[in-house]
């Protein structure tokens, strides 16, 4: 059984996002380890890109700092290996934009990521239309498909039907970042997606508080928290301690 399938045994799951290299490489590895060991069921490990066009200001800022501190694809993949050495057993999904992967070489990227212990990929600028090349190379590691509130019923069906791993449902029409309230009609949107697939449906974009997570958790199989995680932990004087508390506070409401 894959680590991803294993993770979804107890739903809903908590999936934080954190970029490698922020505020520096060592701290980011410690933070991800702390998240993993204090309640995260799956972690989206962020690869930095100079032009993150699906991200709001908080994640842009964090990944910019990571780049200034010298993060690169190679170091990021090595960090996955380090996390496995430290006994992190939950699924780690690499989330990043396509160009750095192309520059690294797709085959090498997938091979090195797999060897290091990554479990799959999320690539926000690689829609269904362009994903064939990557999927062919990725083999048994899933490319997590994304759906949005703007996706037509036809697209939902096509994308959901072939879903591997789980579905990343973008809850708002927009970029990453916390919102005061949950998107209207989220329940209907989740129900629509479920018509086409038995794969787990996880919801991200706009979820910032344990209360919101709890509400989403009642409808979805997983709750993705990115911006709030980066902002809270990145802005803290003791990031690792904060990461522990952050993971606990979300895990608690989802159990």
């Amino acid at each position: 059984m894959s680590r991803i399938t294993e993770a979804f045994k107890n739903k809903p799951i908590f999936m934080p996002y954190f970029p490698l290299g922020y505020p520096d490489l060592d701290t980011s590895i410690d933070v991800i380890e702390a998240l993993a060991k204090n309640g995260a069921d799956l972690i989206e490990v962020g690869l930095s890109f100079s032009d993150p066009l699906a991200d709001g200001p908080v994640i842009q800022h964090a990944t910019q700092i990571a780049l200034e501190k010298g993060i690169a694809v190679k170091k990021s993949i090595e960090a996955i290996g380090e996390l496995r050495n430290r006994g992190v057993t939950i699924p780690l999904i690499l989330m990043g934009y396509y160009n750095p992967m192309l520059a690294y070489g797709l085959e090498k990227f997938v091979r090195d990521a797999k060897e290091a212990g990554a479990d799959g990929f999320i690539i926000p600028d690689l829609p269904m239309e362009e994903s064939e090349e990557f999927i062919k190379v990725a083999g048994d590691l899933p490319l997590i498909p994304m759906l949005a509130p703007t996706s037509s019923p036809e697209r939902m069906e096509m994308i959901a039907r072939n879903a591997q791993g789980f579905i990343y449902l973008v809850s708002v029409t927009g970029i990453t970042g916390e919102r005061k309230s949950l998107a209207e009609g989220l329940g209907d949107l989740i129900a629509q997606v479920r018509e086409h697939t038995s794969a787990p449906v996880c919801v991200g974009f706009g979820i910032g508080t344990p209360e919101q997570a709890k509400e989403v958790g009642e409808m979805a199989d997983g709750v993705i928290v990115g911006t709030a995680c980066v902002r809270t932990i990145g802005g803290s004087e003791s990031p690792v301690e904060t990461a522990r508390e952050f993971a606990k506070s979300f895990a608690k409401v989802l159990r």
Binding site: D125, L126, E129, M146, A148, T150
Partner: peptide, 24 residues
Amino acid sequence: MTLLPHKFGPYGGQFVPETLMPAL
């Protein structure tokens, strides 16, 4: 799948977030 050719040889394409695909 597109009405018009969406590539110029190996170049071009639609590398955008899913949210924008319906708009394109």
